[in-house]
Every structure is written in structure tokens, then in C-alpha cells.
Design a protein around this nucleic acid. Structure first.
Length: 455
DNA sequence: CCTGGAGTTGTCCTA
DNA sequence: TTAGGACAACTCCAG
């Protein structure tokens, strides 16, 4: 019998349109593996909400692999050593995986590939997570893009992403599957009772992702352009966490959206909702492009001038923001939705982010860290882009004078206060506003002069 | 190399 | 009540 191939699952927790899995399955027997090694991703090892999601996603993936004929082996420990051990135990001839683009992960994976090849093994990686990988996209001058619109135009001018390929009908496992550990033993679930609302809100896993997509296409795609701005409505796709963990393929989403509006090439789509949604997938690509080409941005502003920005030390304000006790109902509603569900509507993410960095003048990194721990869709590329955009220190950032007014944003996007009422009880001991917005706005504009170097 | 149009998501003041 | 301009320049990127 031919030697089996190890399929190293990471952020591609699906069988559908999974290039690494497909390649391995076409060669013969496979050993599907997930390795829990959070230390290797420091300082951005998965946060609490991500771990909750991962726990359930692994349960689903494990069930699917089992059913398809090749049980998932779960282990913990250093990735390279674990892969080498598995090679030894199974006589595998190679290891395959789908690529990730976070700086720490790239460094690790590069080392692992080199080591495996030096061991005399076949090691091959694939694109399972992006429509267009960052190393293949550049301006006419060969530089990375830093402005979204030209980036997006360039993507639209290209050949479209390939059609997704369905899951292999059957997987062939090895005769004696290597021992693994239980999902429970990874201790991914929170110890306190924090996840009950999350459990009601989400269905982690491949099937849950596909259902979300179908539901979105049926109910919200058409009205997406405006619907996505109403946090009280289910007007967004809510696919972010499924996409982050690779439970659904972006190619699958891309083509499903195209097909939903007649199957025209994406560049020719003028239907408002579909065009706007594909553009959001474009932002996901752009975020990965930026993080790949500017790896320092996860921890420092892209625009070096901003290192001078006089951020406030305000642990009390930060705490009030985190707990949803700022006295600004739309901000508090968002922060409480985040705490309860592990997710926040994108419109509200912008409002709360602007509030933290402009009204409280607390560093975007504090916000990024809180989101990182509490979002089920926490994604280093998207989180970095979003926070640097709000703070004005990133690529294609919001102009410095664009400071969200939490009151007018609420009036505009939650006029009947349906969203606020869902998350905030303003009767009992609801706090007074912790800042005067008009005053805070002036101070923020003043502080920004330090960066622009003017008086 | 130069040129010129353009840049996700806003707010406030004035006429 | 509403519409329009100011809020800063700067850099990006295609032609």
C-alpha cells in the first residue's frame, strides 16, 4: 500500500473546496490532523471566544471526517514535533496544508516546510482561504496596494477565482489510526458560564456556515447595501467566523453570490446588494494583503507618525467601554452584544472603535486586544485593518476629522432604538455619559495635531 | 518621471 | 429645513 498523506487542518475546518484535502485524497489514504499549539501564534494566540468557537468547530469536523472514512486525530504540542511523530507512527510520505498569512504563522510554517523536506518528505501547501493571495497581487510598479479602491479594481480586472470543488465523496483512512486526545482535553471552553448566549446564537462548523450562506442569499443579499447598516436587522451575512475558521470557502461564497444574481462575472455585477457584498469580501482580501506585506501592523501603526500620538492612560474609561457602561446607549449596546454573543454588527464596531480611540483617546491596540479576546470571528488581518482604520493610523485610514458622533450615529442607523433596547436597560442605574462628546471631539482633533506636526 | 484624480462607512457650521 | 462647504494635506496609483 502507498504511504498515506497527513492533512494538517488549521484555518480550513471543512471538507468542501479544500485544496489540501483534495490533493491528499486523490493520492490515497490520508491522516487528518489538528494540532493545538497556541503558543506558536503569540502574541496573538486565540482568544477566549475564538476558543469556544474552535471547540465546536472541531467537534463538527471530527464528525465529518469520521463519517467520510478517515477519523480526525487531535493532538497538542509543538507543531513540527507532532507532525514528525505522526509521520513516524503512520509511515506517511508527506504533509499537506492550506496556507495562513499571519506573520508568526508564516514564520512557523516556513520553518516546518523546510524541516519536513529535509526529512525527505513531501510538504506542500495550498490556497484554501483567499480569493487572491497577497504574494500574487501588486501595483503596476510591483508594490503592495495601500488603498482599497485601486486594489479592488485590480482584483476585478483579473481572472475570477476558480469554481469551488465539492468535498471528496469518500476518504480513505489508515488501518490503524494514530491515537489523539479528546477535544475536551484541550480545555477550549470558558470555565465560567459565559457562552450560553453564544450557544443560542451560533452553529459553528461547516454545515452551519452553509446554512448561514443560504439564508443570507435568500433573505438579505438583495437589500444588503442598506440593510447592512441597520444593526437591529439581520441584514449582514454573519459569515465572518465561518470564514475565519475556514468552515466555508471564500470561493464558495463568491460564486454563490454571483450565481444568485445571474452568474455574470463579478466585474459586471451592478445589482447593488451583490456588488456591495462582493466588495466586502474584497475588504477581507485587502486586510490579508496588508498584514502580509506590512507584518508589523498587527502591533504598531502603519503610519510611523502615529507613534507620536498622545494616547491617554485611562483604565477606568477602558473598563467602562469594555463593560458597556459608557452612558452612550449605542456604544454600550454594541459592547454588550459583543460580550453576550461574541459578535458585533459592523456599523456598531465602527461606532465603538471611534469612541474608544477618539472620545477616550485610548490606544487602538487596547481595543484590538479586547476584540481579539471576545470576538468569535477574531481575525488578525481584519482586526488590525479595522482598528487602524478607526484610529486613522493605517493604510487608507479614515481622515482624522472623521469622528463618529455616537448620538447622531444612533439616530441615523437605529432610529427606533430597537437595537439599543435589545441590549441596554436604561431604567435601572444606567450610567451618565462618561465624557462630553463635543469636548472630547475637540481634544481628539487637538491631539491629532501632534501627529501632523502642526499647531 | 511627471501629472492629476481620487481616497468605505462623518460632522458641524453657515447661509 | 436643507444643502454645501470646510475640515489638511498627502500619498497612492494609473496613465
Amino acid at each position: 500500500m502507498k504511504s498515506p498523506t497527513i492533512v494538517w487542518f488549521r484555518h480550513d475546518l471543512r471538507l468542501d473546496d479544500n485544496p489540501a484535502l483534495a490533493a491528499a485524497a486523490s493520492r490515497g489514504a490520508i491522516v487528518p490532523v489538528f494540532i493545538w499549539a497556541p503558543d506558536e501564534e503569540k502574541p496573538w494566540e486565540p482568544g477566549a471566544a475564538s476558543r469556544w468557537w474552535l471547540h465546536h468547530s472541531l467537534e463538527r469536523l471530527s464528525a465529518s471526517c469520521e463519517k467520510a472514512g478517515a477519523p480526525l486525530v487531535i493532538r497538542r504540542g509543538p507543531s513540527l514535533a507532532t507532525l514528525r511523530a505522526l509521520v513516524k507512527e503512520t509511515g506517511a510520505g508527506g504533509v499537506v496544508w492550506n496556507r495562513r498569512y499571519e506573520p508568526a504563522v508564516i514564520a512557523r510554517d516556513t520553518g516546518i516546510k523546510k524541516a519536513l523536506v529535509a526529512d525527505g518528505l513531501a510538504a506542500e501547501s495550498f490556497n484554501g482561504s483567499l480569493l487572491f493571495e497577497p504574494m500574487n497581487v501588486a501595483t503596476k510598479e510591483g508594490r503592495p496596494y495601500q488603498v482599497f479602491t485601486p486594489f479592488w479594481r485590480a482584483l476585478l480586472a483579473r481572472e475570477e477565482p476558480a469554481e469551488p470543488r465539492p468535498a471528496p465523496k469518500k476518504l480513505t483512512g489508515v488501518d490503524r489510526s494514530p491515537k489523539g486526545v479528546s477535544i475536551d482535553s484541550l480545555a477550549l471552553l470558558p470555565t465560567l458560564d459565559w457562552a450560553s448566549t453564544m450557544e443560542k446564537t451560533w452553529s459553528p462548523g461547516e454545515a452551519g456556515g452553509r446554512k448561514r450562506l443560504e439564508r443570507f442569499l435568500e433573505r438579505a443579499l438583495k437589500g444588503y447595501s442598506d440593510g447592512r447598516d441597520q444593526p437591529s436587522e439581520d441584514g449582514t451575512s454573519s459569515l465572518s467566523a465561518h470564514l475565519h475558521f475556514g468552515e466555508i470557502s471564500p470561493r464558495r461564497v463568491w460564486h454563490a453570490v454571483r450565481d444568485a444574481v445571474g452568474g455574470k462575472p463579478a466585474a459586471k455585477i451592478t445589482t447593488g446588494g451583490a456588488e456591495a457584498y462582493l466588495r466586502e469580501l474584497g475588504w477581507r482580501e485587502f486586510a490579508n494583503h496588508l498584514l502580509y506585506h506590512f507584518p508589523h501592523t498587527a502591533d504598531a501603526p502603519l503610519r510611523p507618525d502615529y507613534a507620536r500620538f498622545p494616547w491617554a492612560k485611562d483604565p477606568v474609561g477602558l473598563r467602562a467601554w469594555q463593560r458597556g457602561r459608557t452612558g452612550f446607549p449605542i456604544v454600550d449596546a454594541g459592547m454588550r452584544q459583543l460580550w453576550a454573543t461574541g459578535w458585533m454588527h459592523n456599523r456598531v464596531r465602527m461606532i465603538v472603535a471611534s469612541f474608544l480611540v477618539k472620545d477616550l483617546r485610548v490606544s487602538w491596540l487596547e481595543g484590538a486586544r479586547w476584540f481579539w479576546d471576545t470576538l468569535v470571528d477574531a481575525d488578525l488581518a481584519a482586526n488590525t485593518l479595522g482598528w487602524q482604520w478607526a484610529a486613522g493610523c493605517g493604510a487608507d485610514a479614515a481622515p482624522y476629522f472623521r469622528i463618529f458622533n455616537p448620538t447622531s450615529q444612533a439616530e441615523k442607523f437605529d432610529p427606533d432604538e430597537v437595537y439599543v433596547d435589545r441590549w441596554v436597560d436604561r431604567a435601572a442605574g444606567y450610567p451618565e455619559p462618561i465624557v462630553d462628546h463635543a469636548e472630547a471631539r475637540k481634544l481628539a482633533l487637538e491631539a491629532l495635531k501632534v501627529v501632523t506636526g502642526k499647531r
